[in-house]
Design a binder for these strands. Structure first.
Lengths: 157, 157
DNA sequence: CGCCGTTATTTGCATTTGCAATTAATGCAA
DNA sequence: TTGCATTAATTGCAAATGCAAATAACGGCG
């Protein structure tokens, strides 16, 4: 060994592997999205809305993993581009419901098959079972970390 | 179903699950790192150097998944904080070799066990085999996407 | 040796981001 | 019903980021 890495091997460290795979998949698909005139974040917003629409800003933020203030600005841009539409929710005027315009839906429909093809590319060589395993492990990992971030370190010691 | 999501289900889409898990693990560990006075990016740089040192900037960028120009600035900050040290490589003066200072090493040593504990937390409830499976699938996914980003769309069709 | 295309890093500049403060609305309690 | 803590979204402002241009050094070729 050139320099003893101790017991810590980056190339075998889950957070590293996860970040690396996540960054690459995001960058690559971001490229694809950009070819359609959308930023990656915009695509994410559209995908979330495709899933359920209309939705309040906070919920989109959570699903798309975009900080609300950042999202708020992205939505303004998207609204200017006529991709989405914002209106206050009649049942609770604090909430702003976002939905796609016709163009927004068209853009989504156009990109969905590309996204699915991209997913296939990313998992090329995986058996159907392996794909399911990956999904399941990622969900479990996500769930494992869910609580500590919500609790603001109520350290009693 | 409230609104037919067509054939595209976000909650079952690999890039989404990957991004979600990756963001959460990064945010959570970022919090931990910050408690030690380091940004997440700084921790990544230190971890890369822990693995092998000294290293040229470009190589650190690749391993840490940080854009080189961004990294260049992070390194300046870290150098000001006496965490790392930069010098030109005698064998090739274009290259800048980065290594940790004593303090940089101390900070790394302090964080490594925390990082490992964090990895355990993230994979809590996983069997040893499942952890290996996850790593392997993430590596394969990463490799699958490796080429298209390097090739600037030399579409012959 | 001197020129030139390539590689490595840094810097300029515009954009994106995140945190904290602000604005606005809700709903519970006195 | 008035007041107040809570929730939702937006905006101010500073910091982080990314791309492209600048700077510097390498390596091969004439």
């Amino acid at each position: 060994m050139s320099d003893k890495a101790g017991a810590f091997d980056l190339a075998d460290y889950v957070p590293y592997l996860l970040n690396r795979a996540g960054s690459r998949i995001a960058d690559d698909f971001g490229q694809v999205a950009r070819d359609e005139g959308l930023s990656l974040q915009m695509w994410r917003v559209l995908a979330v809305l495709h899933h359920r629409e209309p939705r309040p800003v906070g919920e989109i933020a959570e699903w798309a993993t975009i900080e609300v203030s950042t999202l708020s600005r992205i939505l303004r841009t998207m609204e200017n581009q006529r991709l989405v539409h914002r209106r206050r929710f009649a049942g609770d005027y604090r909430k702003v419901l976002v939905s796609r315009t016709h163009e927004g839906r068209a853009a989504t429909e156009k990109l969905v098959p590309v996204a699915l093809a991209f997913e296939s590319l990313a998992t090329a060589g995986f058996s159907a079972e392996e794909v399911e395993t990956l999904k399941s492990l990622l969900r479990r990992l996500f769930d494992n970390l869910g609580d500590l971030e919500r609790m603001p370190a109520t350290r009693a010691g």
